[in-house]
Write a protein that binds this DNA or RNA. Sequence first.
DNA 1: ATGCCTCCCCGAGGGAGA
Length: 259
Amino acid sequence: MKIATFNINGIKARANALPAWLEESQPDVAVLQEIKSVDEGFPRDLFEDMGYNVETHGQKSFNGVAILSKLPLEDVVRGLPGDDGDEQARWIEATVVGTQAVRLCGLYLPNGNPAPGPKYDYKLAWMERLRTRAKALLENEETALMLGDYNVIPLPEDAARPGAWTEDALFLPQTRAAFRKIVNLGFTDAFRARHLGPGHYSFWDYQANSWERNNGIRIDHILMTPQAADLMTGCGIDREVRGREKPSDHVPVWVDLAA
DNA sequence: ATGCCTCCCCGAGGGAGA
């Protein structure tokens, strides 16, 4: 089962690029972030015609997440628990059943800039809620993935120019510590289990010719519970997508599971 | 780089992103 995460930066703006990538990459599941659309505005027919089931958790103008799946999506939950007053659409989870059940948690973690400030406080609080959900997945021994745009650069090697990010909410020590605190509960970073060393990125800014200069960062991650990690047969980043017509600023990251 | 593009809102130009 091939499962991908892709921050598409607006479903309307990606009406060509997203179907083209799905057609060639053929993921069984694609978890999307920043659909920037309400549920009613999401072009679900486009993906249903390609054989995908569609579940969205949208919001006007900002944020918004979705899951496309060739297998039925069961037990869909929208919103990350822990703050009933949180109006931002950043979390959706569902179960897909192949040869076995896999719980998929699609997430769009807050950016947090500028830091310090209320946006950074929200990011850290959101990460603490994520840690609570992550603990439950481990305690239940679920075959589960938490995947999406984490807005976290885990290590200096995950940025082409780490020195440019030292004051940024994506790379502050407190951000990286909060991310480690989740990973160290017992998750495996799928990409790092397969590929070591610098030079692997999932985001290149639209500005200052970042793509042409390969000035990227790796902020889109797939975290696996031990039961999911046992099933991994491959993981990759579709970096060439960034060089195409009207691209998102992120590219897809995917994992293959024997499930 | 207190922001070089691009997205969204709409029907101008500002907020947000990372």
